[in-house]
Nucleic acid binder design. Sequence first.
DNA 1: CCCCTGAGTTCACTATTTGAACTTACCCTG
DNA 2: CAGGGTAAGTTCAAATAGTGAACTCAGGGG
Lengths: 165, 165
Amino acid sequence: MRWNELESEPCPVARAVSVIGDRWTVLVLRESFKGATRFEEFCAGLGAPRATVASRLAGLVEAGVLLRRPYADHPPRSDYLLTDRGRALQPVIMTLAHWSETWLAHPTAQAFDRRHTICGHRFKPVVSCSKCGEEIQPGEVEYGTRQKTAKTASLMPGSPDGDHP
Amino acid sequence: MRWNELESEPCPVARAVSVIGDRWTVLVLRESFKGATRFEEFCAGLGAPRATVASRLAGLVEAGVLLRRPYADHPPRSDYLLTDRGRALQPVIMTLAHWSETWLAHPTAQAFDRRHTICGHRFKPVVSCSKCGEEIQPGEVEYGTRQKTAKTASLMPGSPDGDHP
DNA sequence: CCCCTGAGTTCACTATTTGAACTTACCCTG
DNA sequence: CAGGGTAAGTTCAAATAGTGAACTCAGGGG
């Protein structure tokens, strides 16, 4: 199965992956959320080859996540803005960044400095259940269809490395 | 920049991407959360070439997201269990699936059937601020360092496709 | 005129993915 | 005990994608 066939899969995760399941694509989105709009800004923030940046931007535009808006003719210039669909990815990036800060500690790490503009604070994204309102703890989610739930290594001796916070 | 250099970047998103920023890796995790533990289960659920599955499983084990546990010698057999670090990725997969269900409607789509085992209901993952407790709306997050916030296409005329729910 | 910026494209190389077949080792059935 | 099945991978050639550097337009400035 080639990955461009993923977009016609019934599973929502597979279709999401067909849009943003690529290393550079996620980083392009990060730059977008941090305020980048122009080709050169994306190139500078990413350190990826220009051709790669161009192809990822084009893909995100095609997927309706970014909007390419010409802002000058003649030297034809465009910038790239998040659409509603793109902005809706913010929870994904936030939870991903939070996971990384929590579980991938690193000498030169620097937190992402996310601030909630309503209350003005730095925050952690808390994920809760839309039905009961309780915060969802790892292991409290069950995936239907198949009967079994995720099997985990909780009672394993000496799990290598899996022990940060 | 080659992507294996990403793991030593200061940005948490970049380091997260170095671990799970790959199409098949995310789908391997999906299978894990759905209960897969054995090599053949991953192969069957993914439709990816066996070599790719093997390499992604090895990568996730190396990253401490999965634990490879031998369960038989002689025909040497192992299975793959989520570690704490792996289970902590659940919010990422949930918000990703939710984004896809909301914004990538598709004829053959079928919802992921996530159920909160505490209250027993199907739910949507709601992301809120750990400081004020309010649900975070798109556009209410500001990324420090750079002054500007994400620029978006909210007041653009005729945004192509970016208008689903 | 010469160099600079912005937004890409082109090109030669390298690395990774794919799909199919092969391996190893045990179990089961007839 | 030959033949088939299962599990967990490896191996290999061919196709595909990513990399880094250089190049292209179209102006602008000095």
